[in-house]
């Protein structure tokens, strides 16, 4: 396993990202109490998230679909500007930078996406796909150097460099995902955000891509932010795991503690739902549905579905607190009754 340091490569401080989906002025007009007013519809995708990712570590983010994982990832690599909060890369604040000032950081932070079919340009050969980021970040680089770099990286991800002139449709899903990873590695990044990189792949191909990610990390000392809904995969490759619900952090702990002794009621429910080979176990059934991120619940955002919710949970937002092995945001854990 990789050995992370204790220095953060990336720090998130109270990051908030909301989307205004109200449309034009006319759609915002509403009558309330006989008066005409403007009303916006806001999707509260990420609601104040704080954590560090350490040099050399894999931090995974898990949670139900729509809980804000991808939005957070996009904020981190600068594809979204947060509404508030701060993001630091190796101690330098990057969230407010203009595209030009962001350029040097873009090269150090790369993103790999879920769908190896749509994330590669179908009209570009593998060579073109790979040289584009290199030329962009190193204007004036010599052709020989580009060629060497492509050969080196293709070999590293296990795709024969002789295939550099082929197009994406000539590759299988697993090979395409290798090319996406190769593209991320071209500019020698320090940090990679991988958003569901193996979800579209078959079991045997998943194993190949996970091995490639782990191997590359060991060789290059990379840090990963890894997003996946497959909790067995997350357990396998993560040093620490962050559990999100409705745009907030519920719990963040080292992987073994999280899987062995989950503290937050939502984490418990999530882990009990993982089907386990050869075990017929009972699942914690949550009541109700995930509320809409347009109207967030009061107090603890999980209170409507939590089997332990009480009066305080409905009124008061739980603070994120240290619980020994990690951090948890839950009144009952804080009070010591869970």
């Amino acid at each position: 396993m990789n050995t992370p340091t204790s220095t953060p490569i990336l720090s998130l401080k109270n990051v908030v990202k909301h989307f205004d989906i109200s449309g034009g002025l006319l759609e915002k007009l509403h009558f309330t109490d006989g008066r005409l007013g403007l009303q916006s519809t806001i999707v509260q995708a990420v609601n104040g998230v704080d954590f560090d990712i350490l040099e050399g570590e894999t931090l995974s983010v898990v949670g139900e679909s729509g809980c804000g994982k991808s939005t957070l990832a996009r904020c981190v690599v600068g594809l979204h500007k947060p509404n508030s909060g701060e993001i630091y890369f190796r101690g330098e604040r990057i969230d407010h930078l203009n595209p030009k000032a962001m350029m040097p950081y873009r090269a150090r932070m790369q993103m790999v996406f879920q769908d190896p079919y749509s994330s590669l340009n179908p009209r570009m050969t593998v060579q073109k796909t790979l040289e584009e980021p290199l030329k962009f970040h190193n204007p004036g680089i010599r052709n020989g150097e580009i060629k060497d770099r492509i050969d080196e990286v293709m070999e590293q991800v296990g795709v024969d460099p002789l295939w550099a002139l082929r197009y994406p449709h000539e590759f299988s899903g697993g090979q395409r995902q290798r090319v996406s990873i190769a593209r991320a590695l071209m500019v020698d990044p320090a940090f990679i955000v991988a958003d569901e990189p193996i979800s579209a792949l078959d079991v045997s191909v998943q194993a190949q891509i996970l091995n490639l990610l782990m191997e590359t990390q060991a060789k290059r000392g990379l840090s990963y932010m890894f997003i996946s809904h497959d909790l067995s995969v997350v357990r396998h490759i993560s040093n620490r795991v962050a559990v999100m619900y409705l745009g907030k952090l519920c719990e963040l702990t080292d992987s073994e503690s999280l899987y062995n002794t989950p503290r937050h009621p939502y984490t418990k429910a999530l882990l009990s739902a993982i089907p386990q080979l050869g075990v017929k176990k009972s699942h914690i059934r949550l009541k109700g549905e995930v509320p809409s991120p347009i109207n967030l619940p009061t107090g603890c955002i999980f209170h409507g579905r939590c089997p332990y919710a009480d009066e305080r949970c409905i009124r008061e937002i739980p603070e994120v607190r240290d619980c020994g092995t990690g951090i948890v945001a839950c009144h009952r854990v804080e009070e010591g009754s869970l």
Binding site: M1, A207, N211, M214, L277
Partner: peptide
């Protein structure tokens, strides 16, 4: 090939 059949962090079996 499933992660469950290896210790976390170990390389996975590949078919």
């Amino acid at each position: 090939a499933l992660p469950e059949s290896r210790t976390p962090g170990e390389p996975l079996y590949q078919i």
